[in-house]
Nucleic acid binder design. Structure first.
Lengths: 152, 152
DNA sequence: TATAAATTCTACCGATTTAGTTGGGAATGA
DNA sequence: TCATTCCCAACTAAATCGGTAGAATTTATA
């Protein structure tokens, strides 16, 4: 249940793109500096985002990267799946593809619930929400809940 | 955001222990067969669970493993943290220890929301719930929601 | 009370994944 | 033509994952 460096970097880079003027490309090097991301590693990530149709790129002297579509239409789940694959895979497969037996026969339901609860947050929140600092109500409610910030 | 084999195995083994009579030890080998888990790998997992005070062990001829406390008091989050560390770590650290700047300054909130939503499922569900096939209402609601089982 | 059997415990190993680097090539604009 | 920038494949180091082997410990039995 770790959030990988790749995912974290991808979301941050996408935020910078969403915060900039549309269709005005930003250089990978500039993104790397803005968010303190290793420049070469960031190129791998941008490449994955481009392959998934989330960003587009322009080569040459005034080139760079920009969002392929409006920030309102890009969910965080889209970004995470682009760089890291499915949201909640169990040993590389979907929860419903596992078969559980005996006392553990309901474990599949738990992983499905985990995936559903991740979707509630990540599928509904868009890049536009994130840069505008206006998260969906139910997401904000989670953050405001008393022990959300307890470290445990 | 992967659910590791270790986590999946740990939950399944714990279910078998919860389903058995209390304080009557079950051999690691028997657990391995019941849930089709590689026997030697399972021993590592049981060792981690023992170090966290979730199971206890008895050596010798009639030895084995059993739950250290009632199944009602063991949450799935307890088990996952025992074998895999914190529920939602960003690059090995807690979300609130990251520092985000610029357009990405609200990203920490998102990871906190992700962790909170995982907790809603994993902190409230106990081993007893799982083997009795009676999940908490809000968890069951997630599973019953229309697109929880959509593969995406 | 030795001793053998059963079982946990610990240290290690190889393969895969993660995080990041390197370097050459291809497009673009001046 | 040439500087700039993206593109892409291969490479590396370190951590993690999945798994193994053998030592250490406890219990049962003679």
């Amino acid at each position: 249940m770790k959030i990988s460096a790749k995912t974290d970097y991808a979301v941050r880079a996408a935020c910078e793109l969403a915060g900039a003027e549309p269709a005005k490309p930003i250089k990978a090097e500039a993104l790397a500096q803005l968010q303190a991301i290793p420049a070469n590693f960031l190129e791998n990530i941008l490449s994955a985002l481009r392959n998934s149709g989330i960003v587009r790129s322009q080569r040459g002297a005034v080139g760079g990267y920009f969002l392929a579509r409006p920030a309102e239409t890009i969910s965080l789940a889209d970004i995470i799946r682009a760089v890291d694959g499915p949201l909640a895979a169990v040993r590389g497969e979907a929860p419903e593809d596992q078969n559980y037996s005996g006392a553990a026969s309901k474990v599949a339901d738990i992983w499905v619930a985990v995936r559903a609860s991740l979707r509630v947050v990540l599928e509904e929140t868009t890049l536009a929400d994130l840069v505008a600092q206006k998260l969906p109500k139910h997401v904000q409610a989670l953050i405001d809940s008393p022990d959300a910030w307890s470290r445990r």
